[in-house]
Amino acid sequence: MTGNFNIVFSGVGGQGILLASEITADAVISSGLDVKKSEVHGMAQRGGSVVAHLRFGKKVYSPLIEAGTADIQVAFEMLESLRYLALLKPGGTVIVNTQKIPPLSVSTGILDYPADVPAELRDRGFDVYPVDALEVARAVGEVRTVNIVLMGAMSRFLPVTEKVFLDTIRKRVKPKFVDVNLEAFRKGREMSAAPVA
């Protein structure tokens, strides 16, 4: 409607969602665009479901993405990819970390974790990119880069060059962690080269 580009970041408190959305926002700003990013702090952060909205374009008014208008969702946890589907536009892109973090109702055996989440997303007509971000992060030697891996996978779909992202990471990350984060980003970016059928 306003020609804005909308990204939903979803996941569980403590997964590094705020930092990933922050770096993405910085990368977008260096392309000279207007940005708004909405977060929730406080009680929700204690292991609860967390969502951040990032919007950019020539001029952004609302801090919140209107239902049915998100271009991309980056889900840091599989179950959480299903929670905010109403925000996505039809046929929108979903980068989904295949990591499962069971909510208490599941871990205590009361409810079941949904089966085959990527298939469920595909059935609903979304363009789905499952990423085992934890495994990729382990492979690059730093499990705390899960968020950067997912950012890498997402970056391919943004009107921002890879170089801008890499430069932003260099600026935002502590010097001794720069290389491992750059590697995590590149590996992540490879993961979304083609949708998994």
Partner: peptide
């Protein structure tokens, strides 16, 4: 935006996908 738009026009936007029944994740 959605609430304001539909409240004023009287037409529900209904643009997003229908919600799924999935386990809640309250904070812990």
């Amino acid at each position: 935006t959605e609430i304001v738009r539909s409240a004023v026009t009287g037409v529900p936007t209904g643009k997003g996908a229908s919600p799924l029944e999935i386990p809640l994740r309250p904070p812990n």
